[in-house]
Amino acid sequence: MAFAKPIATLRSATGVPVGRLAMWWLLASEIVIFGGLLMSYIMHRIGHPEWAAEAAHTNTVAGAINTVVLLSSSLSAVLAHQAAQMGNGKRAARFLWITIGGAATFLVVKSFEWTHEIHEGFVLTRSGFWSFYYCAAGLHALHVIAGSIAMGFVAVDAAKGRELQRVEYAGIYWHFVDVVWIFLFPLLYIAK
């Protein structure tokens, strides 16, 4: 069904394009979702000194690899945005696919990491630390999956030169996912 955008979508009294504005509000709500979970985690982590022994079993190498992967995928997302700004939809789509490849790599590393940990006996119910570990990283992984699906749609459109402004919005979302991981990494892997 052909869909014509209403005039409302084309107005911009704030000076920020509506799509980007909505994305910022979405991120504000995401901040409080992750914030609620991470604040709960931090409180428990400080209140439970015995979790240090549990946290020692997390795999810093896997976490570091994943950080590199996510930072690099952020780079390709911003390069996609740069290409879209230049009006080069094909190049933007290529960079978006690279970003999605980064997301896939992230998930593969994560699944190997988790398989190993579960095999070692560090399951969800082992202690509060592991519950939070799987809960927070899992919620983040869900965002990685959602973001890559969204970027897939944007990339298909961008390759045809349509809706290039969405490349930026998808990128902003992706950088947010990256920022969440930037905080999850020290919280779960480094502070032991």
Partner: peptide, 14 residues
């Protein structure tokens, strides 16, 4: 709503 519901969504997951 948007600014307050986040912790509860996290809580609902928990």
């Amino acid at each position: 709503f948007m600014a307050s519901v986040g912790p509860l969504i996290a809580g609902a997951v928990m």
